[in-house]
Amino acid sequence: MSVSDPGRGRSLLWTALLLIVVFAVVPALLASAGRSYLYQVANLIMIFSLLSVSMHLVTGVAGLLQLGHAAFYGVGAYCAALLATHFKLSIGITLPAAGLAAGLVAFLVALPTMRLVSIYFAVATLGIGQMLYVVMLNWVPVTKGPNGILLFGGLQFLGFDLSKPAPAYFFVATVVSVSIYVLHRLSHSYYGNALRALREDDQCADAMGIDTARLKLESFTVSGFFAGVAGALWAHTAGYISPADFNFNVSILILSMVVLGGLGSLPGAIVGAVLLIGLPELLREFKAGDYRNIIIGLVLFGAILFLPKGLIGETSALDLVRRQFGRGRSIPGHEGGVGWK
């Protein structure tokens, strides 16, 4: 591909635009507002974007309804918090460790449950998510139970002190952007197409030579890994975690983001996260914080009833992503063809 290819130019333009918004426009706005509380909201939005995009890989692309995602988020958060408090490790070590721990737990959970389909899988993940939650709540010697864990010392990375709001924002933004880029490449590639095939009909995909059990296992593990990374980010930026951050309602909140944005649509998952975290914060400004959860429920119900495809449906999301972020590899006149390597 030559550099003058218009597709490539546009793809670079869009990527650059997004990066400018995340790394320049938003921080500038936050700095001008000058309230550290708003930085926390921005971090929370980014962490939940990562959570909903990681759930999008399993629930949207691979079609496995996941009702226990918050548990992996919690495993990551507790892993990072315990490493940081007991061994004084910085986030450079706790972040990958949290991801690996959550990925490992997801892998172990996936081994026996991958045989299950549709609702049985959903309920198995719900059951396991609740088991992990009960453990976080009641294994007092390790997790300190409902009191939660306080992290002192702020955010340190490679000797740099990132505890101020702005550096913390940039750190979270970098980690989330890189993670979402990886998930984007996974879900918009032949690999993602294989996952979509097994969502549509896993027996048929199996018959066509796709190793469905392995794909499900891999996508579930990868999704768990990134949920764990999000958990570590949350533990370090919030400085305090408790089991209530990882209960069933949080799983449902993440699911609502994915459904609202459009099942199978990665941009939709991000939009869903921005809306469902951002809107309640706006409402809080107007002293309507009590209605937060009821609004989430109504939004979810309305989205299913009136927007069954979500805000950005999968088909239009795929079009958007392939056109704007496709690295200009689609051959003109062959857009309708197979694949997109």
Binding site: S118, A122, N249, I252, V259, I296, F301, I304
Partner: peptide
């Protein structure tokens, strides 16, 4: 059908949240 199953799964979940939160309010 599967579509019906998944749509109602989510819609009943959504209504359960609304009902619970309404009672809580």
């Amino acid at each position: 059908s599967r579509a019906m199953r998944e749509a109602t799964l989510m819609s009943s979940l959504a209504l359960s949240i609304v009902a619970r939160e309404a009672i809580e309010l």
